[in-house]
């Protein structure tokens, strides 16, 4: 037993695929160092040991989609000095946030083929819609190097260094040929947060926005470009309505495209609950 007082770490799962907490286990070279620097007090996927709170740092994966989980996240908040959400589910509601669009009149049918099927379900919302969040880490899935940076920064008591620029800029840095320009391939790179390493364009595939909207992204201009390049509004809508559909920057754009066939914004009243 070590006598130095290590900060405690807890990892929590809500509605999610497990992939973001797996990223922590994928830190194969750093796992023991992490366990040395922090006392792992609650991490169901890793250990049988469960230590009662309070916890110095909680990592939260997953969205809030049931009344029981809305209660549980408040418990986690109460028992955590610092609460960090990891991944698209926890920060934006995840792909399961598509249910939020159901039952929303005429346009919902275009975004969502069978709204009547899901209208009775609860919404899927980010953790920040329920409790205060101290730090968010984006991505579907998150990048494990960024996760280590967030934890390291936490231990050092500083802000993590995370990219705020776009996949588009990352592509330029890599010297990847621009797919929309060269081939007319639909690509969300200009409005998507950097962090993946611009993987998709490097294999000839347009970005599908799995790290969510970048700061100040102009989705209206990009939507106009997608339509000019011949994409049907319904397909452009679907492109915005995947893993970050629960983020209004992408979700509202998807709604606007589905409802009006135009890249214009929608009224506030049209927003999903």
């Amino acid at each position: 037993m070590t006598t130095t007082k290590r900060p405690t770490l807890a990892v929590w799962k809500f509605a999610s695929c497990d992939g973001c907490q797996l990223s922590l286990l994928d830190c194969t070279d750093e796992l023991l160092a992490l366990a040395g620097a922090m006392r792992i007090a609650h991490f169901n996927e890793l250990t049988r040991n469960k230590v009662d709170g309070p916890y110095d740092v909680s990592l939260v994966e997953g969205s809030i989609s049931t009344p029981a989980d809305a209660e549980r996240i408040r418990d986690v908040r109460r028992s955590s000095h610092r609460l960090i959400t990891i991944g698209a589910c926890a920060t934006a509601g995840g792909i399961q946030a598509l249910r939020n669009f159901a039952g929303d009149g005429e346009y919902a049918g275009a975004v969502y083929a069978h709204p009547e099927f899901v209208s009775t379900l609860s919404t899927s919302t980010p953790v920040s819609a329920h409790v205060a969040v101290d730090q968010e880490l984006q991505g579907c899935p998150i990048d494990r190097h960024q996760l280590l940076e967030v934890i390291t920064a936490e231990l050092a008591g500083r802000r993590p260094v995370l990219p705020t620029h776009t996949v588009c800029q990352q592509c330029k840095g890599r010297g990847t040929v621009c797919l929309p320009v060269a081939k007319g391939t639909p690509c969300l790179g200009p409005v998507t947060r950097a962090g993946c390493g611009a993987l998709c364009p490097s294999i000839g595939r347009g970005c599908f926005g799995c790290f969510g909207p970048s700061e100040g992204s102009n989705t209206g201009a990009l939507a106009g470009r997608l339509l000019d390049d011949g994409m049907a509004p319904v397909d452009a809508s679907a492109l915005f309505a995947t893993f970050y559909a629960g983020d209004p920057v992408f979700g509202d754009r998807a709604l606007a495209l589905a409802k009006t066939g135009e890249p214009a914004p929608v009224d506030d009243q049209d927003r999903p609950a």
Partner: peptide
């Protein structure tokens, strides 16, 4: 909590199924 993948797949293009179901 169930995430209702079969419901959210309805109306999506078959081409999207590898990325969506991976989640």
């Amino acid at each position: 909590p169930p995430r209702f993948f079969e419901a959210l797949l309805k109306g999506r293009k078959a081409a999207e199924t590898p990325d969506i179901t991976a989640r």
